[in-house]
Design a protein around this nucleic acid. Structure first.
Length: 625
DNA sequence: ATAGGGTTAG
């Protein structure tokens, strides 16, 4: 295996997740539960009503999944038509005509030009124009955002259209589930799946299950994936080789060869005794290797590549077999197969290699300790018209760094642009780490600066690593300057403050600490907890100063805050009084008539109500998520 | 016309 556990944890930590986290929590999922909450007494009532509605909206559970799409439109009963609480049925594709089609094509064009900001903005503006975008247009934009990993923008657009009453369809749900799986939030993905099942007036599709099961497997939730697979079957879907393939691969990853074979048998039985999709052969070989049944593994390999072409092998299926060889010490076989794959590759008719093949080989070479060749094979992928992406580069750079090949990693980083790829925060984070490990703290700081200069957003763990590394080698000034730089950009936690406090106190810079404390109290960004106070007081004592200095500072800030609040209230009252006078004097009934004047009043006084009910709605949706 | 048809990135 190419990655050790610690390095995986490190990867998790270095991913720019906090940004996602923040947005993910804020952006409410699509739902109108909050509105409906008002009309029922208990959650049970709501659930019962929801089931009833779904029953009304749907006929029988599906026999063939292909039928789903057409169902909702016809099956709306008159009662649900008039029910404002009914789940909104997404528009059918045949509304995509005339102006709305023109709009759609216009936005598709913007997407093709890769101006996703403009595409999203255009979509939003259209929502309140006389030409509302269809869900198909919105999906196209959201799909583009998802492809670009712009998760927060995706969610904000999704929230916007949901609030504007544009109903999601199954593709929208599938994309949401994809998004949460990619963000390593499988439970949120499952919640959206559940909501699709319970609330949406349509059924999940086969793709929904593929996405969800893959996401669960990728997030180490194979058992849950198997449950979902069973649910898929019980909902009338055929056994799907792709879904079984994911699950088998996941079980193989967990070294459970028996479970892999069990799944394969189940699949074979359900398919009437024969599995012809090559997708399961790689995982199957892994299972035999795990059980040390090498002969059987090689038999399966022969079966997969047999001349009779009974088993359908494509690039993905080959990659899984290649991976099986690499991971189980059959590197010679892997090399041979890789050559064969490259020879068979004959686009566009027959695809047998892709970017993934090269990534598998990179891992294989590293397992063999053949680092140089790994880089060579990686850089040669252009021969087969494959293009490395940022993830592939980062994977290789991480492997190089983990094997004390920092110069090679840096060289590779420098060559990314020739493949049209730019380093991201993960790339720089990896190099930064490696620099600290290689006693090059100044270069580590340079990489961090590069992130800032290139408008990348290093996250808190990356920042913490930088500051810890700098302090460790006694570079307090540098550490403090990065603290100052990032304190407004990142949401620091207690640990990051405490670390800086300690570092400064250790060198006697307690005044700098007091200054930071003052800023914290001014901004209320974080509570000044007991540990922080203790660090400051210890620091003061060590400098032969009074502990009470801190208490006095806190008190002073409290007083200032109260004073400010009082002034604000006064200000507001004065403003209110003058507004009243203005309404009374400047909008008299003789000018605009009574009605106009009272409308104005209603708008003024009703304003706060509108805002608060929006807030209630928003928080209700967050809760429901 | 929007996703999906699968791998790799631990």
């Amino acid at each position: 295996m190419a990655f050790s556990k610690p390095s995986f944890l490190h990867r998790l930590k270095t991913l720019p997740l906090p940004y996602h986290h923040r947005v993910l929590h804020r952006a409410p999922p699509p739902c109108s539960i909050s509105i409906r909450l008002l009309s029922f007494a208990t959650p049970e009532d709501i659930a019962a009503e929801r089931r009833k509605r779904k029953r009304q909206l749907r006929m029988q559970p599906p026999i063939s999944p292909a039928r789903h799409q057409q169902q909702p439109q016809q099956q709306r009963s008159p009662t649900t038509n008039s029910n404002p609480n009914a789940p909104k049925i997404p528009e059918h594709v045949f509304v995509l005509t005339g102006n709305r089609l023109n709009l759609h094509n216009k936005i598709l064009k913007i997407i093709r030009e890769n101006d996703l900001d403009e595409a999203a903005l255009y979509t939003r503006h259209s929502v309140y124009s006389n030409c509302r975008p269809t869900i198909f247009t919105c999906n196209a934009v959201m799909a583009a955002l998802l492809r670009a990993s712009r998760y927060s923008d995706f969610l904000s657009l999704h929230r916007f259209i949901t609030q504007a009453g544009i109903a999601s369809n199954v593709i929208t749900y599938n994309m949401l589930i994809t998004l949460y799986c990619e963000c390593r939030k499988p439970d949120t993905a499952l919640e959206h799946y559940k909501r699709l099942i319970e609330d949406a007036p349509f059924e999940p599709s086969r793709a929904t299950y593929r996405i969800l099961v893959k996401g669960l497997v990728d997030n180490n939730r194979v058992e849950k994936g198997i449950e979902i697979k069973d649910e898929m079957l019980s909902r009338g879907f055929d056994a799907d080789e792709v879904v079984y393939g994911y699950l088998m691969n996941g079980c193989a990853k967990n070294k459970d060869g028996d479970k892999v074979l069990e799944l394969f048998e189940e699949l074979r039985e359900k398919l009437g005794g024969e599995v012809t999709n090559g997708i399961v052969y790689g995982p199957l070989m892994k299972a035999y290797f795990l059980k040390e049944m090498e002969k059987e593994a090689m038999e399966k390999f022969e079966e997969a590549v047999a001349e009779n072409l009974k088993v359908k092998m494509d690039d993905v299926a080959y990659n899984l077999v290649l991976d099986a060889f690499c991971r189980f010490g059959k590197f010679e076989e892997a090399l041979q197969l890789f050559e064969k794959m490259k020879n068979l590759h004959n686009p566009p008719w027959k695809l047998t290699v892709n970017l993934g093949s090269y990534n598998v080989m990179v891992d294989g070479y590293f397992l063999e300790g053949r680092f140089k060749e790994a880089v060579e094979v990686f850089m040669s992928m252009g021969e087969k018209n494959c293009n490395p992406d940022i993830l592939s580069f980062n994977n290789l750079i991480e492997l190089l760094c983990n094997n004390d090949l920092l110069p090679e990693a840096e060289e590779l980083c420098g060559r990314m642009s020739e493949k049209g790829v730019s380093p991201d925060e993960v790339t720089y984070g990896l190099l930064m780490d490696a620099c600290f490990k290689g006693n090059r703290p100044d270069d580590a700081a340079v990489y961090f600066k590069k992130m800032i200069d290139e408008n990348l957003r290093p996250n808190l763990p990356v920042y913490n690593k930088l500051v810890e590394g700098l302090v460790q080698v006694g570079k307090i000034d540098e550490a403090k300057s990065f603290f100052d730089l990032m304190v407004t950009k990142l949401k620091f936690n207690f640990a990051s403050y405490e670390f800086m406090f300690k570092a400064l106190c250790d060198v006697g810079r307690v005044d700098d600490v007091l200054k930071i404390v003052g800023d914290i109290l001014d901004e209320g960004s974080i509570d000044l907890n007991d540990d922080m106070q203790k660090i400051v007081k210890d620091g003061l004592r060590r400098e032969a100063r009074e502990e009470e200095e801190l208490d006095r500072l806190i008190e002073q800030k409290e007083n200032e805050k109260e004073e400010a609040k009082r002034r604000e209230i006064e200000e507001a009252e004065r403003a209110k009084a003058s507004a009243k006078a203005a309404v009374a004097n400047l909008l008299p009934s003789k000018l605009f008539g009574n009605k106009e004047g009272s409308n104005e009043n209603a708008a003024l006084s009703g304003n706060s109500d509108t805002v608060s009910s929006n807030e209630v709605q928003a928080s209700g949706e967050v809760q429901a998520s």
